[in-house]
Design a protein around this nucleic acid. Structure first.
Lengths: 152, 152
DNA sequence: GGAATTCGTACCGATTCAGTCCTGTTTCAA
DNA sequence: TTGAAACAGGACTGAATCGGTACGAATTCC
């Protein structure tokens, strides 16, 4: 289904909340309540995001999480990559040289391009844009992230 | 991982073979041998594609499969849609109105656009282009399928 | 020192995926 | 007319992944 996992979905929602109040430092229970998501899940995702250095964590009694960078400097591609590994639509793109019919496979080079297109699209969308849907008008058209896609 | 299933991957390879010789009618064992894929799997996929009317099947001893339309008239979006259901990156896009935090969810409307972008990208690539990678030069840029992506 | 919080890891049930197999049904050709 | 070849439609299975939970350890602040 070309679908991201719920974990990633939740993660983006959580990051959106964090991006809305960059000064405030949220802890896991706060975020879980705000996003109406189960706490253990939220905790797990936040840990992952911290390890991938999209969030910075602060331990102790007044601890919590905050964005490691400005929301404008975090792309959707980074987030998805952090939460579920490198973006690769087909297996033969992520697993290099493991495909027995690679020499005769005319499909592969095109997949690579399509994959690149999707990746570029996601890299061109920042967390800030996801957080403020009504506010910004961002065109990815002419000259933008998705403009240059072509097959060979 | 934003990944298509192997079934879909195989299906595209099979369709590519069929597109390379549109006159020839292949049967399942032939295709399995050519693509070096297990026969039961190939058979299963071909059945699916026939039911979704991307292929036409001919029963009997001289039976087999051939494309239901010209390769130029079959898009990647159709193929993927046939083999693994509608293209929906997030669950809240495919399952309508099932999201408890929908009113407060600023993420959703943007997902919808990103999803639409991916879908449009895949709709703009035909099977013929996948089959002949060296031959065609197709730009999806300015005015093409991916040009108009924007966040509100 | 104690309480609150994150960190790491292990675990479990349910679902999906990849692949196989079997029992028809249809068609062609000898 | 009969048998072989091929598609049609399921049912089935083992493995992997996903979604979610739990618990002990480390850290920091009061």
């Amino acid at each position: 289904m070309i679908r991201i996992t719920k974990q990633t979905d939740y993660g983006i929602v959580l990051l959106t909340h964090l991006a809305a109040n960059p000064e405030h430092q949220y802890n896991a229970p706060e975020l879980a309540a705000e996003a109406r998501l189960p706490l253990p899940m939220v905790s797990k995702i936040l840990k992952l995001l911290a390890r991938e250095s999209l969030l910075v964590s602060h331990r102790g009694v007044k601890g919590g999480y905050s964005l490691a960078r400005q929301a404008e400097a975090i792309s959707m591609a980074e987030i998805i990559g952090a939460l579920e590994g490198p973006i690769a639509i087909t297996e033969c793109i992520s697993v290099e040289g493991d495909c027995s019919h690679e020499p005769l496979c005319p499909v592969r080079s095109n997949w690579r391009r399509i994959n690149q297109a999707v990746r570029t699209a996601l890299a061109g969308i920042t967390l800030a844009e996801m957080a403020h849907p009504k506010q910004k008008l961002v065109s990815l058209g002419q000259g933008g992230a998705l403009a240059g896609i072509q097959l060979q």
